[in-house]
Every structure is written in C-alpha cells, then in structure tokens.
C-alpha cells in the first residue's frame, strides 16, 4: 500500500471517528476528493466479515462514502457485503435496495440476492423488486415475492414498487392482473391505489376498464376517483 493510500486511510478513519461522536457530514467531502483511494480502502475493509457487527460504522459508510464511489468499487463492495453469513436485516435491506437501483449494472450480485427471495422482515420483498430492476432472467420466479410485497409489505413505497415492477413486465401481466385489481380496490393507501389506476390507463383490457369504472365511482379517496376517470378517458382514446 502506498504512503498516499495509508495517509488517506488514516484521515478517512479519523473523520469517521469524529462523525461517530458528532454527526456533521464531514466524511463525504473527503470521499469526493479521494474517490479512487477510498474505494480501494473500503473494498479491502469489507473483506472482513466482522464489519457486519459494526452497524454505526456501516451506516456512515452507506450514507457518506458509498454514494460517491464509482461503480467499479461500489458494486463489488455491496456484492461482497451480500455474501456475509450474518447480516443485520436493515443493512441487508439497504444493500439489496441499492444494488437494485444500479439495475442491470449490478447483475453480478444476482446470485447473492436470489437466496433472499421469500425472506421475512421485508427482505424478500425488496429482493424481488431489486431482481426485477436488474432484469433477472427468471422473472416468473419473482412473481410470488412481488405479489406478496404488493399485498403485505408494511411500507406503502414497497407495495408501490412491487406494483410498478409487475405492471412493467408485460409478458406476465395477464396472470397478475387480478392481484393488481385487488390492490386497486383494497389497499389502504390512496397513493398506491392512484398509481395503479394511472398505470391502468395504458392497459386496454376489459377487466381493467371495469376496475377503473369501479374506482371512479366508489373509491373513498377523491384523487383515486379523479385519476381513474383520467385513465378511463385515456383508454377511450385507445379504442
């Protein structure tokens, strides 16, 4: 390791230590100036699985270091973390989510995410969504996880993402439509219902039209009713 890298490493950990005692976002400007070296340092650091036990350090790395690294370090770092035997559920969730956001660029991580399909605490949900973003070639294997996320995820954003991925995949849309219609009719959050209603405006299908009519007439939220009407008008233009 060069002297330069050693001094950067020392400085980085000094800043992280200061950040631990008083959060002030002082790590990120340093990372931006030394991306290449910091990327190498963190890549070496994550080789030690004991890092998984230091949740505070990991949270600073996730918030203030990783977002500024190039993919050549970013993706291998997250992929390495995914291979840990024991991983805190929140870190696991965040790692999968971030890899999903890199979509096809992070395909090397697919084998390590697949094993989390069906996992509890929302991890199976986010794994299915991430694999959908990454264009996993066995999409049919993701459908149970996506449907479960659509119905059961505690956070509305996760349910919304599951709906988005299901709608995006036109090949399997017919088979999942009843569940999407069910979500349009019964999800507790109007933001999810309006989003499904909006997307339905592009699906020229009698079941969809019926569901939109119902939403337009009966949904308890005015925005869902209005969006359903807009989508019905869109469908009218398609026919």
């Amino acid at each position: 390791m060069s002297t330069k890298t050693t001094s950067i490493e020392e400085e980085l950990f000094k800043l992280i230590e200061q950040e631990l005692s008083r959060p002030n976002y002082i790590v990120e400007p340093f990372v931006q100036k030394n991306k290449e070296e910091v990327g190498e340092i963190i890549l070496r650091l994550v080789q030690n699985e004991k890092l998984a036990e230091n949740l505070i350090l990991l949270s600073i790395i996730y918030r203030q270091v990783l977002p500024y690294l190039e993919d050549e370090h970013y993706i291998p770092i997250l992929t390495t973390i995914m291979q840990y035997d024991k991983l805190d559920s929140r870190i696991c969730f965040q790692t999968i989510q971030r890899l999903g956001w890199r979509a096809t660029k992070a395909q090397e991580a697919i084998p390590f995410i697949v094993k989390y399909l069906g996992e509890k605490q929302g991890i199976g949900d986010v794994a299915a969504i991430a694999l959908g973003e990454m264009e996993y070639d066995k999409f049919e294997n993701l459908i149970p996880g996506l449907l479960s996320a659509l119905k059961n995820a505690a956070y509305y954003g996760t349910r919304m993402n599951a709906a988005r991925i299901l709608i995006k995949n036109k090949e399997h849309l017919e088979s999942v439509l009843p569940k999407l219609i069910e979500a349009l009719e019964s999800d507790e959050d109007f933001r999810l219902r309006q989003k499904i209603a909006r997307n339905f405006g592009e699906i020229n299908n009698s079941k969809v039209k019926k569901a939109l009519l119902k939403a337009h007439k009966n949904d308890k939220h005015p925005v869902v009713r209005t969006v359903a009407k807009t989508s019905l008008d869109d469908l009218e233009k398609l026919t």
Binding site: E28, V31, P67, Y68, E70, W101, G157, K195, R198
Partner: peptide
C-alpha cells in the same frame, strides 16, 4: 460540487416515489 450527480446515479428514491413516474 458536493457530489450530487454521483449520489443521484445510485439513488432512485425520487423516481420510485414520484406519483406519476
């Protein structure tokens, strides 16, 4: 330059949350 473009490359929270994609 506080690294926003790098950040946005890796974060899609706003895209996911947008009410109309």
């Amino acid at each position: 330059d506080f690294g926003l473009t790098d950040y946005c490359r890796k974060c899609k929270r706003c895209a996911e949350a947008c009410e109309n994609e």
